[in-house]
Amino acid sequence: MANQTAARFVLALILPALWLTPGCQRSDRNPQDNAAFSQPVRSNLVSAVSYPLYYLTGQLLEGTPVKVDLIAPPAGASDQWTPDQQQIETLQKSDLIIANGPGAPFAKWMVRVSLPESRVVPTTDNFSLEEFIMVKDHRVVHRHGPEGEHSHPFMVSETWLDPAMAKKQAGEIATALASSYPEMGDRFQQNLQQLNGSLDGLTERFEMIPTGSVITATPRLKFLTRAAGLPDTHLLWFDLPEESLWQTGGEQAFLDRVKESGSRCILFDTDPPNWLKERLEQLGYPVHSLDSFSQGGLPAGGADFMQVMENNLQILQDSLSR
């Protein structure tokens, strides 16, 4: 800096005498290396924002040096969870961030964190609109920003509960991995074929589910019921009803809602409190608890995605067989 300042002073002394014509060039930095930016340095680390995506990615990375990390709310955390600084750093240095798509409740934190957008892989982007399940959340209407009065629409994000959708997502992940690690492309293809085989097996398992209609505590299980070809009536029990509210009209509202469905089977993707479970059973609605991975985190008991799905299907089959 001192040298540069001195050099500038000397030049400033010479300039008046020389009366240079335009063209005196100085160079502070080298021009950007665009090619380098297009192919950034790799960390051989991939992050996934939910357990099913973590599982699919892990399967695809089998036998490669690339590691996958799960960044998701811990068990029991609300969907308003935000990663800590260390997790944010992990995300920022990841070669790819495998995400579901917009609006996933378990990944709401993604809008609150600075991510290298070009490395985020939204695995549902190529789904057609008909493939998605949208539920209008009509509970809260408010006004802010330029869009005026509105309520929050609810998009069901547990796409992996439908093995065909999970297959598509695995395909998207494999494409992104091959693009980031082209030298491992063949390995990803092999892994993908193997994974697709497993998911196809799961699809076959769905075909064994008997017909019937169901009631779901939240719309989160809709991909599962749709894949099984089961008509469902969904409740909006994102937050389970409180006992006092249940007694002051909650129960009647429930009965009004489900009377049209003709179903006597209620599917939860969380464990309801005992009083509710008992009351529902008293009313003739036996409760069945599945796992939709809606928290995003690791499943309980060390089971993997396939095992949990097998278990879900078994419960579903049992409940409908009764």
Binding site: R29, Q32, D33, F37, P40, T82, Q85, I88, Q92, V111, R112, V113, S114, L115, P116, E117, S118
Partner: peptide, 23 residues
């Protein structure tokens, strides 16, 4: 996005890069 800092080759003199909303 964070890509901008990489694209422009802008290292930090102090502190950390953007982490969360509001940074």
């Amino acid at each position: 996005s964070l890509d901008y800092f990489q694209f422009r080759n802008l290292p930090l003199a102090e502190g950390e890069s953007l982490s969360r909303l509001g940074d």
